[in-house]
Design a protein around this nucleic acid. Structure first.
Length: 118
RNA sequence: CCAGUCGACCGGGUGGCCGCUCCUUUUGGGGUAACUCAAGGGAGAGGAAAGUCCGGGCUCCAUCGAAAUACGGUGACGGCUAACGGCCGCCGGGGGCGACCCCAGGGAAAGUGCCACAGAAAGCAAACCGCCGACUUUCGGGUCGGUAAGGGUGAAAGGGUGCGGUAAGAGCGCACCGCGGACCUGGCAACAGGGACGGCACGGCAAACCCCACCGGGAGCAAGACCAAAUAGGGGUGACGCGGCGGAGGGCAACUUCUGCCGGCCGGUUUUCGAGGCUUGUCACCCGGGUUGGUUGCAUGAAGGCGUCAGCAAUGGCGUCUCAAGAUGAAUGGCCGCCACGUCCAUGCCUCGGCAUGGGCCCUACAGAACCCGGCUUACAGGUCGACUGGCGUU
């Protein structure tokens, strides 16, 4: 199984926010090229989303979904998943499907879109 | 059985698969070592972790003592506690048939101020409608005086009821109640009971200022300490020199040598006092801030369980046992079953409120440790236990 590196520094999150985005009902995915060997992944749930237990639960479900499709993340890329309130009640299988399809979407956009060098 | 009061407690359980953080004198691999990798084992959110409202520990403000002013807080009494604005007991007041509950509960004869509207009048006694007397009259009334029982306004109108008394009245007199109260009794005390006597004066608001008593320095773990990287505009120690004054020596004098003191700045939010610390320039030597990352602080403590003793209790003494999360874009979980529980729908039964069966939903309320304790407050689906009160029924 592919190893994932967790993003912890604020600078990494700010950098990823400038990357390619793909929105789904339960979350939106941001991706940008990086120099790391392993794909990096981070989670963002804002305070507007809910109170503390709800935000924690959203992060945990998204983390579990990301682990389920860990092999689909590409090396030398950083990903940030921004959680939405719908992630609380969404069906877990659908969550995994959405994440998988949004990874594909992010990279296909990069393939034909004009990109600045890394 | 129904209704209710108070207190204590729980706040999903159990399997399977896959994960996260920490610990590990379990085993194996790597490494000289610090250490690291893998497997195994162990531990891993709350009663409020919350709000950040009080009280502390701890850390820094170089050290921290006194007084005053200002500001803030508390407010019956006695106790408990490290401390508190907390808790326990008790007193007073209010509510409830009761168990029990509620109270921002010092001072209004230290002073200032306020008392809306209404009302004649809102604190000092006064008199709108009245009542009574005298005088007067154009017989409608008017003037002067007495009075505050009655009317009316108001949250509140200068004790209440009754009898006597009177021109009409009035604590003017008397009885009872209320008020003040020397003193006596009980209690550690708040206070309670009695009460000679006084003779109605002394309205309310202190959550308006204020007065009294007591308490309080500020900032906070993003405190603070250390390490590494890259990098100076800072600091310390020593020597020499500088201003004023005094003393001693040399010199006729200008001056000079030695020595002591002082001036300046800092000093918990302000002022004062006190202990105390530091100085402007040159040279030499030495050391380090801010930023980023990491380590530490960081979990053995006013700790908890059980037993026992003292106490009405809060609580304390003694004995014994236990070690119980430590994250930092933030772990403590994700998914799938089963069982309880709740709720909704349908069908059936029926004593009209429940029961049974099937299905759906939430897979549950409030809510997530962030240095640590003691409290308070607020939120909370549902449930358990105990003590007690008022009814009804049975024996």
């Amino acid at each position: 199984m592919q190893m994932l590196r967790q993003l912890r520094k604020r600078a990494e999150f700010v950098r990823a926010a400038r990357g390619i985005r793909a929105g789904r009902s339960a979350f939106s995915l941001q991706a940008i090229a990086s120099t790391g060997e392993m794909p990096g992944i981070g989670y963002t749930v804002t305070k507007k989303t809910g109170n503390s237990p709800q935000r924690n639960r959203i992060k945990r479900r998204l983390r579990a979904a990301a682990r389920a499709c860990a092999a689909e993340f590409l090396p030398q890329n950083d990903y940030v998943i921004v959680g939405r309130r719908e992630a609380l009640g969404a069906n877990f299988a659908a969550l995994v499907r959405d994440l998988s399809s949004s990874i594909v979407k992010v990279h296909s956009t990069r393939a034909d879109g004009p990109r600045k060098p890394k």
